[in-house]
């Protein structure tokens, strides 16, 4: 057994439902927590980021136009497939985060549960966040949340699965599409999640996963005029980068979710703000008469 030579993997990007290599042709070595080689990952370039935005934009209309019930079903299906592939994710977390197997199992469980939690929000957030407004006049007036559009997500650097899921799920469950820059040093869970997404019912382009550096890709995404929002979660602790990206994001007034000073504890149940930060409120008036 031990004589067998491993088939070493070279992971690819996940863009528009396909798995392309990086346009640049570059890859980088991914190591485990102890520094041993694990695999090669594609090193996404600015052009990959651009392609991912195009894919995400194309997917936005149809995805946001689906019924909330359907998006809930799709997300729940992701949770199912993730649960199916539990051992693979446990291994990825063990390798990337250096956790014990039992701790990694808890992380995977938590990640599946997190997906289930967010899936359920798809058809409830509108009722919790929206509402009827009793204007002083003969008008029917209703406020409803709508997806912002294409959201660039800089995923957490350390929490490679639970943090990733907690970053992506609230963005897409409400109808946004995402361009995700995974953890640079810990991309294994992200590329495995991409395989899960590809084999579940998530339409191509809804989630696009780029492995690479947030410092390199971030500025291109932050200044991209067809990106509507930016989650800076992955810049936690990097105040200068975070500020520069926020400045660039002002070019088209992206909605920016700032990073906390340090990467948060993702085992805590997230707040509604993880979803509402990437929602717009639309208020529709109509007269009432005969």
């Amino acid at each position: 057994m031990s004589d067998r030579i491993d088939v070493r993997k070279t992971y690819k990007l996940y863009v528009g439902g396909a798995f392309p290599r990086s346009e640049s042709g570059y890859t980088y070595e991914v190591t485990d927590a102890k520094g041993a080689f694990v695999a090669n990952a594609a090193l996404a370039s600015r052009k990959d980021a651009r392609d991912a935005v195009v894919a995400a934009r194309k997917a936005f209309g149809p995805w946001s136009g689906r019924t909330a019930y359907n998006r809930a079903q799709v997300l729940y299906r992701v949770a199912e497939v993730l649960e199916d592939r539990r051992p693979q994710f446990v291994q990825a977390v063990v390798q990337s985060e250096g956790l014990s197997a039992s701790k990694a199992e808890r992380v995977v469980d938590e990640s599946v549960d997190r997906l289930v939690w967010y899936a359920g929000w798809a058809d409830k957030i509108t009722q919790v966040v929206g509402g009827a407004n009793p204007v002083a006049g003969p008008f029917f007036n209703l406020t409803t949340p709508e997806a912002t559009g294409v959201v660039a997500v800089l995923a957490p650097e350390r929490s490679s699965l639970l943090g990733l899921v907690t970053a992506i799920a609230p963005v897409v469950v409400t109808g946004n599409t995402a361009v995700v820059v995974s953890s640079y040093s810990r991309p294994l869970a992200a590329v495995t999640l991409a395989e899960v997404l590809a084999t579940s019912d998530v339409p191509g382009g809804v989630v696009n996963v780029l492995t690479g550096s947030a410092a390199t890709l971030g500025p291109w995404l932050a200044s991209h005029m067809d990106v509507n929002a930016l989650d800076l979660l992955g810049t936690a602790g990097q105040t200068e980068l975070a500020r520069d990206l926020e400045v660039a994001a002002a070019d088209n007034l992206k909605r920016v979710r700032r990073a906390p000073a340090a990467e948060p504890d993702f085992t805590r149940e997230p707040g509604l703000d993880t979803m509402t930060d990437f929602l717009e409120l639309k208020t529709v008036w109509h007269p009432m008469g005969v």
């Binding site: 006049g137 003969p138 008008f139 007269p287 009432m288 008469g289 005969v290």
Partner: peptide, 10 residues
């Protein structure tokens, strides 16, 4: 004939 919106007309 074009409709008349009550609220607008009033």
């Amino acid at each position: 004939l074009p409709g008349v919106d009550q609220v607008g007309a009033e």
